[in-house]
Amino acid sequence: MKSLAAITFIGFFCVIWTNIPFPFPVPEGFPSPIYKFQNNPRTREGFELGRKLFYDGLLSKDGNFPCSSCHQQFAAFATYEHRLSHGFNDQFSFRNAPGLFNLAWKKELDWDGGINHIEVQPLAPLLDPHEMAEDLNHVISKMKKDKTYPVLFNRVFGSPGISSQRILKALAQFTASLVSADSRYDKMKRGEVHFNQYELKGYEIFQQKCSRCHQEPLFTDFSYRNTGLEVDSTLKDFGRMRITGRKEDSIKFQVPSLRNVFLTYPYAHDGRFVTISEVLEHYNSGVVQGPTLDSGLRKGISISSDDRFYLIYFLETLTDSSFIKNPLYADPAMGVRNEAPAHLH
C-alpha cells in the first residue's frame, strides 16, 4: 500500500517535471507535413520558449530587431507595407519578408529555396549584417547572463545549457507551429459557409488561370519559376541561380502561397508590386520575355477587368483572421495587435 502511494507520488512528480507533448494538428485536406518535429518533439514548453525567442530583441545586435520586427502577426508575419524590411543600422533587407505560415510543409525556404531545413532558417537573418547583425556565440552569452533563459532552456531540454542547436530547435517549435487554415475559403471547404456568387466566380477564374502554380490547399506548388519580372538593376537578384549556380535557374523564385495575400503586400521577391491589381496586370500585360521564362507565361495570362473584379473577391477569402488574432502566436509580453501600431517604422 505504501509503495503504491510512493509510485503514485513519483508518477505525479514526473507529470509535473516532464514536458507535456503538444500534438501538431494537420488541417483537414492538407498533405502530410515535411517537418514532423523529428528529433525535436513538440511540447508546450518548447513552443513557448520558441515564441519568446521570436519576439525577443536580444537576438539582434542592437536589441531593436527581433524576428517579429520583420514578421508581424497582423500582416500574417510578413512586414506590413514594406517593399524591403529594415534592419540593423538603417539598412534594408535584400528581399521582401515573406509571411510565415504553414512552414512545416516547406522543403526549402526563402525566395530562392537556399535554406534546406526549417531549423537552420533563423541563422540567415540572425547573422546577416543588414538584418539582425548578430553572432551566435554572442547571442548565447547574452542569454546565459539573462535571468530567465537558463531556467527555460533547462526546463525544455531537460538539462542545463544554451546552445545554438537548442535555440534553433526551440524557434522551430514555434515557427513550424504557425498554421493558417481557417480562412473563409477553408470554412467553405469544410462546408461551414457558402461562397457568394462573386466569390464563386472568382474561385472558378482562379482555378482556370492561377492554380497551375498556386495549387490548393497550400496555394503554392513550391516550384521555382521565372514569372517575367525584370531584374532590378540595384538589387541584381537572380533568384534560384544564386543557389544552384545554373543558368537555367536564372530569375526563378519559389512560388509564394496566396494564403493571406491581402495582408502580405507589397508583393514579389523585391516587393515591387503594392497592390494585387498591379500583380494581376503584370500577368495580363507586363510579362518580360526571357530564356528562363515559365513556359505557361509566354503569352502572359489574359485577365480582363471583370476577371480581376471576381478574383479579388476570391483572394480575399484566403485571409485567415483567426490566424492573425490567435493569442497563441502573439508576443507573450504584449498580446495580440489588431492593426499596425502608429509608431511602426
Binding site: I115, L123, D128, L136, L168
Partner: peptide, 14 residues
C-alpha cells in the same frame, strides 16, 4: 557541426 563554429553558410544552407 554547431553552426556557431563559423563553418556554415546561412543563405545557402551548407
Amino acid at each position: 557541426l554547431d553552426p556557431a563554429k563559423g563553418m556554415f553558410w546561412t543563405w545557402n544552407s551548407g
